[in-house]
């Protein structure tokens, strides 16, 4: 799939050409990172959050609203 389409960015032809060239240059420069394989790492545990609801204290103002619902 087209990359700009996949990340929902519309590009002009000129932009697309320039960005593709820059991307290729950067990926070639990165190339084979080529360091040795790292050793596997260990895990640590954290406790899950309980299950207590807190009343919403946020005034999240959605810019487009209608009867409380957001208009897309």
């Amino acid at each position: 799939m087209d990359i700009p389409e996949l990340c929902r960015i519309k590009l002009t032809d000129e932009e697309q050409e320039r960005l593709e060239a820059e991307m290729k240059q950067i990926l070639d420069w990165a190339g084979e990172i080529g360091v040795p394989e790292a050793k596997p790492t260990a895990f640590e545990a954290i406790v899950p959050r309980g299950d207590r609801a807190r009343k919403s204290a946020y005034d999240i103002r959605f810019p487009k609203t209608k009867d409380g619902k957001i208009v897309i």
Binding site: R49, A53, K55, S56, I60
Partner: peptide, 27 residues
């Protein structure tokens, strides 16, 4: 459950867009 998966918002039914916080609205 009383609350949501990754935030403390209540899961009970309510008027639209009231049981929300920065986490579950992707702020």
């Amino acid at each position: 459950t009383e609350s949501k998966m990754y935030c403390d918002c209540p899961t009970k039914n309510a008027q639209p867009n009231l049981q929300v916080c920065p986490i579950c609205t992707g702020q």
